Simulated scan of single mutants.
Amino acid sequence: MGSVHSADGTVISYRSVGSGPGLLIVPGTLAMAADFDGLAAALAGRFSVHTIERRGRGASGPQGDEYSAEVETADIEAVRAATGARFAFGHSFGAFLTLEAALGGSAFERMALYEPGVSIDGSVPMDWAPECRRQLEAGEPAEAFLTFIRGINPETSGKAPRPLLRLIIPLAIKKPERLQKYALLAGSIREHAEAARRDNDFPKYARLDAPVLLMAGKGVKNTGAGRSAVRLKDVLVGSELVLYPKLDHFGPEKDPATIAAAVSAFCLDRSA
């Protein structure tokens, strides 16, 4: 474990493992650094891997009253500067933050992004947020979580009847993981709002000159994050897009070996 102070004084912790050139992992919403221990371990043979514990989680400080994507990109830069990380891997909202950090000046030589949570044509909807917030305030986190998963993916989980999801979720997600997601849900609303308020400003990423590996799972056609990876391919000059039809949005956590192999090959490409 290590920690740094971000630009606003907030303590940001990170988990380190391995040896070699530095690689920073930026988890997505509802995730903690430990959720990416499998990916970090799979990369540790070739990299010094540093997984940031994003603010509002674990030993890191709170999101704060002045929360914004900008304060999170300052967190990323603080950890990058402290560790000397040359490469970055971002998942979902973490991939969006990685792009924002690079645009703000974080000097990553290469970035690998799995289903970036970049809002394109309303792909990060927020109409679910008021009801989700109300349910959290009423002490109904399980119902709030159902509202979230139905609202954020209207073409997939959004089509499932709520009573059916009440039966499926406890079977599909173990209790410790559910409790973690419930605890992070209020902060997740603020995070999604940050991505949503930048809807369709993604052409700005064309200014980036660092090579980018874009990755997407089987939801490439019917989820916002999957489609965003495809759209970003046309904007990010010289980027690569790799599809994993057997993986879902949580591919980096469920199949870390496959994702680590792709990230390693891309970041250590000697022909570039």
Score class of each variant (00 low, 15 high):
Cys132Met: 03
Ala160Asn: 13
Ala196Gly: 04
Arg80Thr: 07
Ser16Gly: 08
Asp65Glu: 14
Asp35Asn: 12
Val79Ala: 06
Ala85Asn: 11
Ser19His: 08
Gly224Pro: 05
Gly90Lys: 09
Tyr67Arg: 02
Phe87Trp: 03
Phe266Asp: 08
Ile168Tyr: 07
Arg197Ala: 13
Ile169Glu: 08
Asp269Gln: 09
Ala129Cys: 05
Ala81Asn: 14
Lys181Ala: 14
Arg80Tyr: 12
Glu70Ile: 13
Leu179Arg: 03
Val212Tyr: 10
Gly58Ser: 06
Lys174Asp: 04
Val220Gln: 03
Gly187Met: 02
Gly28Asp: 09
Leu247Tyr: 06
Ala78His: 07
Trp128Glu: 06
Gly158His: 05
Ser92Val: 06
Arg162Tyr: 02
Leu232Pro: 07
Phe108Val: 09
Ser6Cys: 05
Lys174Gly: 11
Arg207Val: 05
Ile173Trp: 03
Pro21Val: 07
Ala34Thr: 15
Ser60His: 13
Pro256Met: 13
Gln135Ser: 10
Glu100Phe: 03
Leu136His: 10
Gly226Lys: 01
Lys204Trp: 08
Ser106Asn: 10
Ala34Val: 15
Leu146Thr: 12
Val26Leu: 10
Ala138His: 13
Ala59Val: 10
Ile173Tyr: 06
Ala183Gly: 03
His249Tyr: 05
Gly226Trp: 10
Leu171Ala: 05
Asp269Trp: 07
Ile120Met: 09
Ser19Trp: 11
Ala74Gln: 15
Ser68Ala: 03
Glu66Arg: 14
Ala88Val: 01
Ser157Trp: 12
Glu155Trp: 02
Trp128His: 08
Arg197Ser: 15
His249Asp: 09
Ala7Asp: 13
Arg197Cys: 08
Ser106Pro: 14
Ser6Glu: 09
Ala85Phe: 07
Ala82Tyr: 03
Val242Phe: 06
Tyr14Ala: 02
Gly105Thr: 11
His50Gly: 03
Ile259Asp: 04
Gly117Ser: 09
Glu115Gln: 10
Asn153Leu: 09
Tyr205His: 10
Gly9Lys: 03
Glu77Tyr: 03
Pro211Asn: 01
Ser188Trp: 11
Asp65Arg: 15
Leu241Glu: 06
Gly84Ile: 12
Gly251Asp: 06
Ala44His: 02
Val26Ser: 15
Ile189Cys: 07
Lys218Pro: 00
Met32Phe: 00
Met32Leu: 14
Ala272Val: 12
Leu214Met: 06
Ser119Cys: 08
Arg110Phe: 11
Leu99Gln: 01
Lys174His: 10
Tyr114Ser: 04
Gly18Gln: 06
Leu99Trp: 11
Arg57Ile: 03
Val118Leu: 05
Gly251Pro: 02
Ala95His: 09
